[in-house]
């Protein structure tokens, strides 16, 4: 508890107990998602087709692979924080809430790892043609 000032009395009392850190990361990854997903949509629309060869050729370019990896990180980070807020709001049982957040972290980090690895495999030429 703080010294009796307004901010001192409320600091750390949010449902996440971590003040504004989550809030800021949520906004920063939201900006990242905005830029990268608009780039992704424009890139997809400009592709001549969505067949395997076209997609792999596009993802082989560094200027596609690197933004795609950043997109994966930004999106999964954003969804991890966002879903955590939902869990904290609706799951009131302590054990179930901790378990849900652990599973959420496994999902977010595992999904991001699979996405980044897939892009890397294509970009480094390891994907079967």
């Amino acid at each position: 508890m703080g010294s009796g000032t307004g901010i001192g009395r409320v600091r750390g009392l949010g449902s996440a107990k971590h003040g504004s850190h989550h809030w800021l990361i949520q906004r920063m990854t939201a900006l990242g998602n905005l830029v990268l997903l608009l780039w992704f949509i424009f890139s997809l629309v400009r592709l001549p087709g969505f067949d395997h060869g076209t997609v792999v050729a596009w993802l082989s370019s560094p200027l596609a692979a690197v933004p795609m990896m950043l997109l994966i990180v930004s999106v999964f980070w954003h969804l991890r924080i966002g879903m955590q807020v939902m869990i904290e709001d609706y799951v009131h049982d302590d054990a179930l809430r901790v378990l849900s957040i652990v599973l959420l972290n496994f999902y977010a980090i595992g999904g991001a790892a699979l996405g980044v690895f897939s892009i890397a495999r294509i970009a480094f030429g390891g994907a079967p043609a």
């Binding site: 395997h52 795609m68 043609a129």
Partner: peptide, 9 residues
């Protein structure tokens, strides 16, 4: 979609 593209045609 990405994993499928990386796994092959």
């Amino acid at each position: 979609w990405l994993a499928a593209a990386a796994s092959g045609p």
